[in-house]
Design a protein around this nucleic acid. Structure first.
Length: 936
RNA sequence: UGUCUCGUAGUUUAAUAGGUUAAAACGGACCCCUUAUAAGGGUUUAAUUUGGGUUCAAUCCCCGGCGGGACGACCA
């Protein structure tokens, strides 16, 4: 009983003793919470940033009013339809990080977000809600009003979603391509193109639903099985062609088609430039690889008498057996050997490939079909069929049989087969390709003393900086190879190609006075006015034109032209506080090489001869952990709101910051967990820094600091300088890799650990303690500024709890400044190696239960590197109780660094109850240092 | 099929201009501490997609394969 009692009292008194001394230590102190509770807390802070009273964006503008440099990020507009997905989140967060990077490096910044509002998907949504019949019955302006409402609704939704990601910008006054003034500016950009002589009209085939009497988008086409003819037709060679082949008798090219009704519009026959062609003994020309197959099918019967490349026939002629018109023999890469005869019936009015190859050879676009799908007067004018009058008004599908009859013995084989064919999604009738008049921006026209648009755009690209560099190849090859830009659409929801046409001549009117008057009407009433007002009302006074002779062009613009005009409507218009034209940077997903980057370049260059951007930055797409595309059916979709709810927006932002965004970005639960770990490490390291400098009043000059503190600052400077360089080049993952490494290895792993003794146990105003605190304050300050662009929320939260030495009103008052150059003779490589070797042995000692703490050890060495250090610095470096030069007994391990030997010994003194170093005379007595600290 | 692009430990990223034994973090395994404690520290595990070529030397440059992605729309 007695022993038991004394045992308890002994423990109690020992605990009291420990507790008492713990009170005397200067332990880290802060209210900055270890855990962020991000999902709960972020929305509150964001609400403040986006409030009128404390607007973060307003503050950012105000704080940099007199900044010497300016950075303008011009926002590429997302489409105002649907909720945002992870790709949007990546895009907007990256923009936000880049804008803030420039901001925290001291520059003036502008970021005005915007939305793309016009276009088919919204129109389709409205039609779906309305029903097709109802839509057709409504006036255009009513439909447009419904589209406008739809867009507005999703702009509001997306705006809140973007703000919930902590993305800062001018959300109070964003741009929208459907605003009246904006529509007017898009139209003005179009007039600029016309004014330069680059706007031309030409026929081009489009999907046409004769049943709905409307052009269709690819999305409006459904594929169904359809039974069609499969026919082989012989076109006799002209004399020129025959002489090129050095033949005397008759010879014919065999074509294959499934649409006999397009034969009247035939103007050419395409051959493959690569394959061999053969002439058979029965006088037919087919591709060599198909010869046997055609024999088997009974299309031809003769053996090969001659083999040749089709290039010998290029630009000679065959004769269309239907109408005796010439059919030009040409070469085209679209010709394949997987069916038919290898000689392709070419009617540019009825096929896309045909149209493209026809452009190259300057073939005539013959298109004798009206909007109902019936032959029109063209068959008469051009004599496309025998007895043409009898075909006028007849539906094309009903004429197939008559045409087959007319072909007579030129029809070598006729059968029927079923294949997949495009159908109209509304009427479920088969669609056709039908050339209609379209508007184009000419790429190769050199008019008015200017180079062609293609050449100018290519030249401008050379001046643009691309991130990554490979972007220029992509955009460049697209500009180089793209055909003329077809900008007209037969739709309702868009900006009209608002030109008058003289009915008598068919010529459009581009007079400056006329078009500017229309633009000013749009500015006031919106582009709806084009549909709502009469020609006389739209025509400027004393225009010199008689409204009676005019008609309106009723096409609308390709929405790419809308977004291609944002540089004008946003940057040049003065309607927004958006910065200057050209912008510092355009930033979008890599799909925009063909989209916005290109359309903006073309519209801007056509108008003003310059690119609208100085830099282009592109990012990849988000994929799942296996690198596969996200899709609802795969169930691997990661929604930004879910990440925000489960992990917090900061985690999503850190994911952006640490990912290599030029390629595809992987995201998954597993990856987010990993990022969360990194965040935790960053947050806790900051917390420890704040807690340790909490009572620091002034920062000590670096020159007066202790050796260990100078070492970490010198190392920090190298890391921060390099990270800054990476951030300026937008290589965030590299910058973060450096910072994370520094935080984990040198800072938290070594420096903070070895500084604890000085910070906790030395007297409050002891210079070694102040020195360590000063180093920590400097590191915290720089680190906060470097991370502020990405972890804006966290740094802002930190500012609330920061001790006075680091405190700012908010994160937005932070500006990064570099650390000065620091002199230090500390041999880092040597010391780190020594530490590693030391801990390797220590680990074994611990596993063998020989020691529990390194403070139980003394290190013996004659190393000159160690003796050059202050004793206490050397002790702290290894976290041992003493470093000595003279040999002592009790060796527990040895190691060597660069020829210097180190010996690990057991400490002989007693554990100081306050600082736990083994330097006391007895377990109850304080060591010398602690005694001084408490009573000195 | 064409144009462009990417491929490094299980995961996310490093490796100055082609140059020692390819680095770190997270994860895993093992251990210590309880004075950053829903923390901290240590030891350890593991990789250049594949086959050729150029070179004294290749993760890096060239060619071919395999695998991923973007673009080739009256889709944004």
């Amino acid at each position: 009983m007695l022993t038991c009692k004394s045992f308890h009292s002994c423990i109690a008194s020992k605990e009291r003793l420990l507790m008492d001394y713990k009170e005397t230590l200067l332990l880290p102190q802060t209210d900055f919470p270890m855990r962020g509770n991000l999902p709960q807390n972020e929305p509150l802070r964001y609400a403040k940033w986006f409030s009128k009273e404390e607007s973060a964006y307003a503050k950012m503008i105000q704080n940099r009013e007199n900044a010497p440099k300016t950075f303008i990020l011009h926002d590429g507009p997302p489409y105002a339809n649907g909720h945002i997905h992870i790709g949007h989140a990546l895009n907007k967060i990256l923009k936000d990080v880049i804008v803030k990077t420039h901001y925290f490096f001291g520059e003036k910044v502008r970021y005005v977000p915007g939305w793309d509002c016009h276009g088919l998907p919204i129109e389709q949504q409205v039609e779906k809600n309305l029903g097709k019949e109802k839509k057709d019955a409504l006036p255009k302006s009513k439909i447009r009003e419904l589209c406008r409402e739809h867009a507005r609704k999703f702009i509001d939704i997306q705006r809140e979603e973007f703000k919930s990601l902590g993305v800062i910008g001018d959300w109070e006054n964003p741009y929208m391509t459907m605003k009246f003034k904006f529509e007017a500016d898009i139209y003005r950009a179009l007039c600029g193109v016309a004014d330069k002589g680059l706007l031309v009209e030409r026929s081009k085939p489009v999907y046409w639903s004769w049943a709905a009497r409307s052009a269709l988008a690819e999305a409006e086409v459904e594929y169904e099985d359809k039974e069609d003819y499969s026919i082989f037709v012989a076109f006799a060679l002209g004399d020129e062609a025959k002489s090129r082949l050095e033949i005397t008798g008759d010879a014919s090219v065999i074509i294959w088609t499934t649409t006999p009704w397009t034969l009247p519009a035939n103007v050419g026959i395409s051959f493959s430039p690569d394959e061999n062609y053969v002439l058979t003994s029965d006088g037919y020309i087919v591709a060599e690889p198909l010869h046997v197959k055609l024999l088997e099918q009974g299309v031809i019967a003769g053996e090969v008498v001659k083999t040749f490349k089709a290039s010998v026939l290029e630009n000679s002629f065959a004769i269309n057996p239907l109408n005796d018109r010439s059919s030009q023999l040409i070469l085209g890469n679209h010709v394949t050997m997987d069916g038919g005869s290898g000689c392709v019936h070419t009617a540019p009015g009825h096929g896309d490939d045909d149209y493209k190859v026809g452009l190259r050879y300057g073939l005539e676009v013959v298109m004798p079909v009206d909007e109902r799908g019936c032959y029109d007067e063209t068959v008469v004018h051009l004599g496309l069929l025998p007895n043409p009058e009898s075909f006028v008004g007849e539906h094309i599908f009903k004429c197939n049989e008559r045409i087959l009859e007319l072909l007579g013995d030129r029809l070598l084989k006729c059968s029927k087969f079923t294949h997949s064919y495009p159908f109209c999604w509304r009427t479920h009738q088969p669609v056709i390709y039908r050339a209609t008049k379209q508007w184009f921006v000419a790429m190769d026209e050199a008019v008015g003393g200017r180079e062609s648009l293609r050449k100018m755009a290519m030249d401008e690209l050379q001046k643009v900086r691309f991130y990554p560099k490979s972007g220029i190849n992509r955009l460049g090859s697209m500009i180089e190879n793209r055909p003329d830009w077809c900008i007209s659409r037969q739709r309702d929801w868009g900006v009209p190609i608002a030109f008058f046409r003289d009915k008598r001549t068919g010529k459009p009117i581009f007079d400056a006075k006329v078009v500017e008057h229309i633009a000013s009407i749009f500015e006031e009433k919106g582009a709806d006015a084009w549909w709502d007002l009469e020609i006389a009302e739209l025509l400027v006074e004393d225009s010199g034109y008689n409204p009676e002779n005019l008609e309106k062009v009723m096409d609308i613009l390709d929405v790419w032209f809308d977004s291609g005009s944002t540089w004008k409507a946003v940057l040049q218009s003065n309607d927004y506080d958006a910065g200057e034209y050209p912008a510092s940077m355009y930033l979008e997903g890599s799909d925009q090489h063909r989209g916005w980057f290109q359309s903006s370049l073309l519209v801007s260059t056509a108008n003003n001869g310059i690119a609208p951007y100085a830099k282009i930055l592109t990012h990849g797409f988000t994929v799942d952990e296996k690198g596969e595309k996200m899709s609802k059916s795969k169930g691997n979709v990661v929604a930004p709101s879910d990440v925000a709810k489960q992990y917090g927006v900061e985690i999503l932002r850190l994911w952006v910051g640490t990912s290599e965004y030029t390629t595809d970005l992987k995201i998954s639960d597993n990856i987010l967990k990993q990022i969360s770990e990194q965040y935790r490490k960053i947050r806790n390291t900051f917390r420890f820094l704040l807690a340790n400098v909490n009572d620091l009043e002034t920062v000590m000059p670096i020159a007066q600091m202790g050796e260990l503190d100078k070492w970490i600052l010198k190392h920090a400077k190298a890391v921060f300088d390099e990270a800054q360089g990476y951030f300026r080049e937008y290589e965030f993952s590299k910058g973060f890799a450096l910072l994370n490494h520094f935080i984990a290895v040198e800072l938290s792993g070594i420096y903070l650990d070895i500084s604890k003794d000085r910070l906790y146990c030395n007297a409050k105003h002891d210079s070694l303690r102040l020195s360590a605190q000063s180093a920590m304050a400097l590191i915290a300050e720089k680190l906060m500024a470097l991370m502020a662009p990405t972890l804006t929320y966290t740094i802002d939260e930190m500012m609330e709890y920061a001790p006075s030495i680091l405190k700012k009103e908010s994160v937005f008052d932070v500006v990064y400044s570099v650390l000065p150059t620091i002199e230090s003779s500390f041999d880092e490589a040597y010391m780190v190696e020594a530490r590693e070797k030391f801990f390797e042995i220590v680990d074994n000692l611990k596993k063998e239960k020989v020691i529990k703490s390194t403070l139980e050890l003394v290190l013996q060495t004659k190393s000159s590197k160690i003796s050059a250090l202050e004793k206490v610095d050397a002790e702290d470096w290894f976290t041992v109780s003493k470093v000595i030069e003279h040999d002592e007994a009790g060796e527990m391990g040895v190691f060597e660094v660069a020829g210097d030997s180190f010996k690990i010994l057991k400490a002989s003194k007693c554990k100081c109850p306050r600082c736990w170093k083994y330097r006391s005379k007895s377990e109850e007595e304080l060591c010398h240092r602690c005694n001084e600290a408490l009573h000195g």
